[in-house]
Amino acid sequence: MIGEVLVECAHMSCAYNSTLAIKKIDFTIRKGDFVGIVGPSGSGKTTLLKAILGSIVPVEGHVTKKPHLRMGYVPQVETVDWNFPVTVLEVVAMTRSSTGRLPRVTKDERADALLVLERLGLGGLENRHIRELSGGQQQRVFVARALFHRPELLVLDEPTSGVDVRTRHEVLHLLADLHDEGVSIILSTHDLNGLAAHLPRLVCLNSEIIADGSPVEVLTPEVLEQTFGAPMEVLIHGGMPVVVDGVGADIAERMSRFG
C-alpha cells in the first residue's frame, strides 16, 4: 500500500549565491519510507535535506509538506560544539523550546525525556556532560533529541560519518527499530556498503537525481560511475550488493609493490 505523501519536491533547484547545488529535482517522501541519499561530497545531499527541513528556500520549484508535519533533525556530529556547557537531558529537552515556557525542564518533560533516553540505551546518563559520552552515545543523544519532538519524519545528515563499525551497527539497528515503529526516515550517507546497501530505498544524487529505487536497482556500476564520477564494481553477496572501489589496474599494481 502506498503511504500518504509527507514531502514532495517538484522541479526544485537550490543555490548558494549563484551556484546551483541541486537542479530541478522531483522527489517524494511517503509515510513509511526509509530513504538513503548517496552521492559524492558537494553533490547536494545536505542541501536537499535542508530544503526538506525548510532551512533553505528553493530558487526554483517548490517543496510541499503535509500540513503540520513534525520533523526531527539529527545534524552531522562534526558540527556539534562538544565543549558547550550542556547535559544530555538539556540537549534532549531543547526541542520543546518553542513551546516550553519555564526555564527548567518540567517534571513531565523530564519523565518523557528519560523514557526516550532509556529507549535508546542512554538511561542513567541524563546528567552527564555531552563530551563525556562515547561516539555512539553522542550520536544517540541527538537522535533522542529529534525523537523527543515525536517526529513523523526523521531527517539525519551523515549519521555514521566518522564512527566506528560497532557504532555504525548500533545506529543502523536503532533506525531500523524506529522505522518498524512507524517513523519515516530520510538520511544522507557516504557509506555505501555499511549503511546505504541495507536501506529499502536509495537515491543517487549528483546535483540531479541519477537513480531512485532499491539498492539492487540503484547500486550498479553504470549508476555509480555516473554519480561518483569514478569506476566502481558491484558484487552480490547474500542477495545484497557490495560496492568495490574500481581502482585502476596500474594503481593496484603500484600499490602491490609495497605489499
Binding site: L53, G54, S55, M71, Y73, P75, V80, D81, F84, V86, E90, V91, A93, M94, T95, R96, S97, S98, T99, G100, R101, P103, R145, H149
Partner: peptide, 23 residues
C-alpha cells in the same frame, strides 16, 4: 533571558536545528 531561556539556549547551542524546531 528567563522567559526565553530555552530558546536562547537552543539558538546558542545549535541555531540550525533550533530554527527547524520552531525557534
Amino acid at each position: 533571558v528567563v522567559a526565553l531561556y530555552r530558546a536562547f539556549l537552543f539558538a546558542t547551542f545549535d541555531p540550525e536545528v533550533a530554527q527547524v524546531s520552531g525557534v
